[in-house]
Design a protein around this nucleic acid. Sequence first.
RNA 1: GCCGGUAUCGUCUAGGGGUUAGGACACAUGGUUCUCAACCAUGGAACCGGGGUUCGAAUCCCCGUACCGGUACCA
Length: 490
Amino acid sequence: MRRVAPRVRFAPSPTGYLHVGGARTALFNWLYARRHGGTFVLRIEDTDVERSSADMVTGILEGLRWLGLDWNEGPEVGGPHAPYFQSERLDRYRTAASQLLTAGHAYYCYCSADRLREEREKAEARGEAWRYDRACLSLSAEKVSELEAAGAPRAIRFKVRTGSTGFDDQVKGRIEFDTAHIEDFVILRSDLYPTYHLSVVVDDIDMAITDVIRGDDHISNTPKHVLLFEAFGATTPRFAHVPLILGADKKRLSKRHGATSVTEYRRQGYLAEAMVNFLALLGWSPGDDRELMSMNELVESFSLDGISGGNAVFNTEKLDWMNGQYIARLPVDQLAKAVEPFLGEAGLWPPLVSGIDQAWLHRLLDLLRPRAKRLTDFVDLARPFLVDTVEFDPEAIEKHLSTSGLAGHIAALKGTLDTAIPFDEPHVETAVRGSAAERGIKPGVLIHAVRVAVTGRTTSPGLFEVLALLGKARTIARLDRLLLFLATRS
RNA sequence: GCCGGUAUCGUCUAGGGGUUAGGACACAUGGUUCUCAACCAUGGAACCGGGGUUCGAAUCCCCGUACCGGUACCA
């Protein structure tokens, strides 16, 4: 019974590429917004100047667009709450910080980084936790002016109230914290840049965010945020913390696990639709047995209730299967469009041999697609069809080209093949089987040898389809080459 | 250490006081067949442990364990 349309946001930090975990968080936000007719805001949290970069922003936007996760407000599209880069909202955070200062919710801290670090180390040596000791909370006026005169750098800390705080998480349920465990955290650094806690809360207030859907790793930050919302006199949004995505070793996903950025998956030949479908099912379920779901189905079925509690291991085998399913179902013209760049990169497209056009490519792709898990698989699969001459695989030579009398059989087959009119699958099959019968050999002998002749390999799509697609001229040419090979070998 | 979270086949998950604990990937076997896939069928495979509550617990509660996250003038 929602009264207002929800406003959700995805707020990546451009200190790295868009990894699959972030992509899934974005997807959940996007689905939630779509499901409830809400607004999906994209906000760039680039307050860490040291580690943020414009290239990363570009990469993140690209990744989101590839996945089809468009944003209603944010970079490049603007919106009523612009700007959507935190680095352009610095004044706002400074104002907010001084607002808390005057309201008595915050205070200046002159403690040096060295002192803080030392205290922390000492405590750790004792096996204790150290929380900021509020040394600067009750500084005398004299001391303050002394420090100011000395030009001591000052940060602003939030004064954490006593008691407890909590929130009703949409995924985890009620979560309660004793504020005794929360230190007076810095909200404005001495360089006047806000920390994450300040900027995120200020922006969520300013941008009227109603639902914060983010990673599990933010749970322990949330009480700080709740405290801030409280201090600003703002309504806290609903929170939903989604479990993390882990590698096969159940550790947080990192480069060690291979590909982690969505761009990398695109490069490896995964379809965006498959990626989205797979990601959606990592940590979420529609509640029934559906697996293959379109964007529209996902939108219609999405609910925070379906998010599971535990972390999920990223299972590449299942992604591969799913990608294969999408490859199998993709309309052939779209498939061609998706495959061409990969063929092009391998120097196979546009093709160097004549007689190859779009229609022919479509037939080829239809032949190959049940054998492909990724778009990159098409390169290897399609190669024999797009080149002039094929290399004979050593294993194939040994397995299928050592039959005695093979040259004679092949020569005879050439003649029979001439009678295949038209040169289509059924006629080719009749010709090959007929030829085998005439020579008194099993069809398999001929089939396997011809397969090697035309593809160079032991495996390929059904031979008769292959020959029909290749056409009579190319087939005969390859048989001649086989004959030549056989002759020079003996 | 402290704070918080999570726990169903190897993996993703459904379910949830009484079920033969369901599906998917992967795996195995069989079918199809000219090979390889795809496809179809079949099979093996799970409720972390211990206490409670209850006629009955995988399900609710507590404890433990394991794992994950946080513990910054990073986000």
